[in-house]
C-alpha cells in the first residue's frame, strides 16, 4: 500500500523509444489503468517501476523515497507478467508458495497453506494445485500468475494484461474479484489492458500512452468525456468514436478540422441525410453502419427499430468534440 510517483521517466532501447518523459502520480490505493496500442510502452513502464529496467532519465518514488537504487525485491512490488513467467519445473502450489518462501518473510507453513488455498479458490485453480506449471492451459497459467501476485501484500501490484487469455465469464468474475481485492485491501494497482470494460469498470485513474509518452492521465469519466486528442478519444468507447470532416454539419469552431461523434453525440431524425449500408443486430442494441457524404459512420439504436439496409436517415450532432489538423482537441 503506497503512493508511487514517476518523474520525467525516459527509457530507450538503442534507437527505439520505450517510454519518454513520463510523469505520473499514483495515489495510495489507486487503481490505475494504462491504455495504449501495442508498442506504446506499457510493459516498459511496468518494468521500470518494478526495477527490472533502469531508466535513462527521471526518478521513481515509492512512499516519497527514491527507489532507483533499489532492486525489485527491495521495492516490494509484485508483477503479473504478460508472458506469465511461471516456474516451469515447479507445481502450481510451489509456484504460488514461491514468493512466500522468501527468507525475508519467514512465513509459517500453515500461513502459506492458508494463503494458497484462499487464492486458489478465488481463481478457481484448486483442482490444479498439484499439476506442474507446464501442464496448464494458457488461461490457467495466467490465473496462477495472478495468484502468485496476490499471495503477497506489496507496495504496488503491477499487472500486465492479466485477464487477456480468459473466457468472457471468467474474465467478468475476476474483474469483480480484483476490484474487491483492491477495495478491501486498499491496495495500489497499476494495470495494463486493451479491454475498455476493464478500464472503465475498475479504474480510479486511466493513463493513456502514445509512442512512449503519457498523453492524458485522469479519471475514467474525464478521459471518456474530455479527451485531449483524437488519439485518446479513440482508446475508449465502443463502437469507436466516429471522426468526420468538421464542416459536414456546419458551425464548427475555428481551427477545427474534424468532428468526433460518439454514439451518444448523435441525434437521429434531423440534419444531414445518410444511407444505411449494413445493420448489425447485437442483441441488446443494434449498430447501423452508415455512409454520410462519403464518410463512414456507426450509429447505435435500440434493438427494436425497424430500420433496414438502404434506408435513409438524418443525423445531427449534439455536444460533439472537435479536433484540429493535428488531432488535438479544439474547445
Amino acid at each position: 500500500m503506497a503512493e508511487v510517483v514517476l518523474e520525467n521517466l525516459s527509457k530507450s532501447f538503442g534507437d527505439t523509444v520505450g517510454v519518454e518523459d513520463i510523469s505520473m502520480r499514483i495515489p495510495d490505493g489507486a487503481f490505475v489503468v494504462i491504455l495504449g496500442p501495442t508498442g506504446a510502452g506499457k510493459t516498459t513502464t511496468l518494468r521500470l517501476i518494478a526495477g527490472l529496467e533502469a531508466p535513462d532519465q527521471g526518478d521513481i518514488f515509492i512512499n516519497g523515497q527514491s527507489v532507483l537504487a533499489l532492486n525489485p525485491a527491495q521495492r516490494d512490488v509484485t508483477v503479473v507478467f504478460q508472458q506469465y513467467s511461471l516456474y516451469p519445473h515447479l507445481s502450481v502450489r510451489e509456484n504460488l508458495a514461491f514468493p512466500l518462501r522468501s527468507p525475508l518473510l519467514k512465513t509459517p507453513q500453515e500461513e502459506i497453506d492458508r494463503k494458497i488455498k484462499e487464492v486458489a479458490e478465488v481463481l478457481h485453480i484448486e483442482h490444479k494445485l498439484d499439476n506442474k506449471a507446464v501442464e496448464l492451459s494458457g488461461g490457467e497459467m495466467q490465473r496462477v500468475a495472478i495468484g502468485r501476485a496476490l499471495v503477497r501484500e506489496p507496495n504496488i501490484y503491477l499487472m500486465d494484461e492479466p485477464l487477456s487469455s480468459l473466457d468472457a465469464k471468467l474474465r467478468a468474475e475476476l474483474r469483480i474479484e480484483l476490484k474487491r481485492i483492491h477495495q478491501s485491501l486498499g491496495a495500489t494497482l497499476l494495470y495494463v489492458t486493451h479491454d475498455q470494460i476493464e478500464a472503465m469498470s475498475m479504474a480510479t485513474h486511466i493513463g493513456v500512452l502514445q509512442n512512449g509518452k503519457l498523453v492524458q492521465f485522469g479519471s475514467p469519466r474525464e478521459i471518456y468525456n474530455n479527451p485531449v486528442s483524437q488519439y485518446v478519444a479513440e482508446r475508449l468507447g465502443s463502437p469507436r468514436i466516429n471522426v468526420l470532416p468538421a464542416d459536414l454539419f456546419g458551425n464548427a469552431p475555428k481551427g477545427a478540422k474534424t468532428i468526433g461523434l460518439r454514439t451518444e453525440h448523435i441525434v437521429l431524425g434531423r440534419g444531414v441525410k445518410g444511407r444505411v449500408n449494413r445493420v448489425e443486430h447485437l442483441g441488446d442494441h443494434t449498430r447501423l453502419h452508415m455512409s454520410l457524404a462519403g464518410n463512414d459512420l456507426i450509429v447505435v439504436m435500440d434493438p427494436h427499430n425497424p430500420v433496414s439496409r438502404g434506408d435513409t436517415l438524418a443525423i445531427s450532432p449534439e455536444n460533439p468534440i472537435y479536433f484540429d489538423a493535428n488531432g488535438i482537441r479544439v474547445l
Partner: peptide, 21 residues
C-alpha cells in the same frame, strides 16, 4: 531471463535463484 526476473520480483536472493531455478 524472465524466470530470473520473476524470481527477483518474488524476492528470491541470487543464492536462492541459483538453487531453485
Amino acid at each position: 531471463d524472465y524466470l530470473y526476473e520473476a524470481a527477483s520480483v518474488d524476492r528470491a536472493s541470487k543464492w536462492r535463484q541459483f538453487w531453485t531455478i
